[in-house]
Amino acid sequence: MTDRRHTAETSRVLMVLGVCGALVFVLPLVALVVRAPWRSAGELATSGPIRSALWLSIVTSLVATVVSIVLGVPLAWVLARSRLPGRRLLRTICTLSMVLPPVVAGVALFLAVGRRGLIGEPLDRWFGITLPFTTPAVVLAQVFVAMPFLVLTVDAALEQLDRRFEDAARTLGGSEWFVFRHVTLPAIRPAVLTGAVLTWARALGEFGATITFAGSLPGVTRTMPLETYLALETDLDRAVLLSLLLVAISLTVLYALRGRWVGAALRGGGA
């Protein structure tokens, strides 16, 4: 009896705390929905600035995701499989931007590829390429802060992968590239997809590094989060509507993928 009452009390405490935890996420969303200017929503959403910001956000976040896959999967492979000295330090550095204040990321990017930057100066002098305050700069900022999500997910999946399958493929005559392409990659596909979705979601919401490194030029670098922040100072209705739009996009994608790649890979690291 005592035992069972004790269990009941414990679970009640957990329940109350758990619900409080959920409220942290639910309440702000509810507030957004309640406060939304539903009557003028259609008119506002189709206004020029919002449309161009939305378009810019979607395009840059998707490009950033593709870049992250193309570079991030090989990077994860290097971290998980190569015998590169200083691999652990490299892993830490490659995932640092997940915990770095985005504004710091922006400053660092500026010092690297800004017009006077480490690489930016020769780029500018020899090829006439200047990155800051361009759309590619937005993509670069997004890749910088979002790619770690893909790298970490894929790295974990590669670590867990049973390497004997790759050995079997080698005895069957597969070159290293053939084995990677036809055995390794199919096995880590769920992790790559999960990582890509997380990367995309993070890229879509990128703000600090973007405004520092790429500025806020309408139609060029002013993505949805920047537009939202600016609207907050002038037009609360627009800010609320923009926020809701971002919430809706992210929520739809994450909810549609729940329990499929995202859940599976986050729980088990992949295959």
Binding site: A168, T171, G173, G174, S175
Partner: peptide, 10 residues
């Protein structure tokens, strides 16, 4: 391994 013509049953 791929050049050895070894068939393995694991």
């Amino acid at each position: 391994a791929r050049d050895r013509q070894v068939g393995a049953l694991f």
